[in-house]
């Protein structure tokens, strides 16, 4: 089973999903994230799904669970980079992910969390 790496940038944990997600991988990610939030005192989590080509009801529910869980530990979650085809399919599937904050890309997600974003000055 693949494990999704969790990177730390300042007070934000960054998860960039680059594999075909299977259920066990997502469950492991949830546990790993909870652990890392507590150990690092992170205030934010960014889940980058730019490379994810489908989100089904299980994966979508896990994003919502991760968001609720991190909130209980005083960290805000933002899901970034959802592809248009994935968004259309999720809504038709019946999953609107109402409780999950989203941003169009990584940079906007980092800004949403108040994290410093290196830019051209």
């Amino acid at each position: 089973m693949d494990r999704v790496p969790i990177l730390k940038i300042g007070s934000v944990l960054l998860v960039s999903i680059q594999v075909d997600l299977q259920d066990q991988t997502v469950l492991a990610l949830q546990e790993d994230l909870a652990d890392r939030i507590v150990r690092t005192g992170a205030r934010g989590v960014v889940i980058d799904i730019t490379a994810v080509d489908i989100v089904d009801s299980f994966i979508g529910r896990m994003f919502a669970t991760i968001a609720s869980m991190s909130k209980l530990m005083d960290a805000e979650t933002v899901v970034v980079g959802m592809r248009p085809a994935v968004a259309i399919t999720l809504v038709e599937l019946g999953l609107s992910l109402g409780g999950v904050r989203t941003a169009l890309d990584l940079e906007k997600g980092m800004r949403l969390l108040g994290a410093p974003v290196p830019g051209v000055s």
């Binding site: 075909d20 080509d53 299980f58 085809a85």
Partner: peptide, 28 residues
């Protein structure tokens, strides 16, 4: 199963949105 559904849907000339729909249904 998702990967095979994706490759057949793409080869059949399905739009990206329709590919995503059949692959998501296959996953469920």
């Amino acid at each position: 199963v998702r990967q095979l559904a994706r490759s057949l849907a793409a080869a059949a000339g399905m739009s990206l949105v329709d590919q995503t729909k059949i692959v998501t249904a296959a996953s469920e």
